[in-house]
Design a protein around this nucleic acid. Sequence first.
DNA 1: CAGGAGGTGAACACTCATGTTCACAACGGT
DNA 2: ACCGTTGTGAACATGAGTGTTCACCTCCTG
Lengths: 179, 179
Amino acid sequence: MSVHLLQTATSVLLKDPTASLGDVAKAAGVGRTTLHKRFPTRADLIHALATEALDLVDEAISGVDLDTDDAIEQLVEKLVPLGPRVEFLLRFPNLQDDERLSVRLTTMDQPVIDLISRLQGTRLRADLPAWWIAQILYAGVYSAWEGIAAGRLAPLDAPRLVLTTFYLGVRDAGATDRQ
Amino acid sequence: MSVHLLQTATSVLLKDPTASLGDVAKAAGVGRTTLHKRFPTRADLIHALATEALDLVDEAISGVDLDTDDAIEQLVEKLVPLGPRVEFLLRFPNLQDDERLSVRLTTMDQPVIDLISRLQGTRLRADLPAWWIAQILYAGVYSAWEGIAAGRLAPLDAPRLVLTTFYLGVRDAGATDRQ
DNA sequence: CAGGAGGTGAACACTCATGTTCACAACGGT
DNA sequence: ACCGTTGTGAACATGAGTGTTCACCTCCTG
């Protein structure tokens, strides 16, 4: 139930960062007093949401063997379902105000950057900055989650769509005109 | 100066959607009274920001000849500099509460979707949904703007980076292992 | 110089989210 | 049956953002 509370709070605050704690409590089907008992202040709640999201993403990344051939494939599989949590970390304002959160945020994707750097020259283009490739990867994952949330994309189709776009782009390889 | 006010307000409210009108006024180097005189309520200000952003994006899209070969290239060139305004439209919550804004938001990128649909089968892969290709395009533009804002990407490099990733993906075409 | 337009800070009343306390109900274990 | 735990609504004080008014200033124009 506590998990469900954090999940609901994440969704509510993402949809409207100015939502009152009363709104959050109501959405979670819980009394405002109870919410205050578990998270004394609004900052505490947001900190808890960020920490939980960081834990989940860390867990997803560390659950992937970064030395196998399909590391990126595994990563995408694991990240897509985290949808709102990733969104919270990427979009919620002023998360970097907290020292410890800031550190975790900046170091979180270092393993991913390293992985990409390692793959550049073999499976990945070496003429692009590693951080850019990581950004594009995250953007794809996030876009896929948006599509799922909007009902336009089947969850099981998401990883394939993200990966094929990520690796091959959108150009028709059989097209006669090249540029 | 009015333009600068709207631009500053956009940046401030994006960085912190809960920022007070006093903060906005101070950031814009203007008195809070003046701000209230021009935009009687907070909702009026946000509505004005959204409308201006919509105008700019509309202008960018309609300024591109969608029948030429390099329509997408032109589009990217024009959209990247709009950075924060696009971000505002994509990320600011509850914009769809306003009827007229909502309509403009949903119909804004229809020409782009149509363009993509037209190009599918010739220059663009036909095995991907048009809306997905549009999302990936926007994500690339937005990522580029983030890179520029973070100082990691030179503005003049942005369009090339977006387009090559968009069309070709990130796979090393010369790699020996295929999948 | 006179007067209007636009901008400003100060002050005010008002609303609302917030944080706190308290009394009460439901529940499980002893 | 007793008691600690957990959750709840009600009520309250507080603080901050908001919207408004007003007197004052500067600048530009007739």
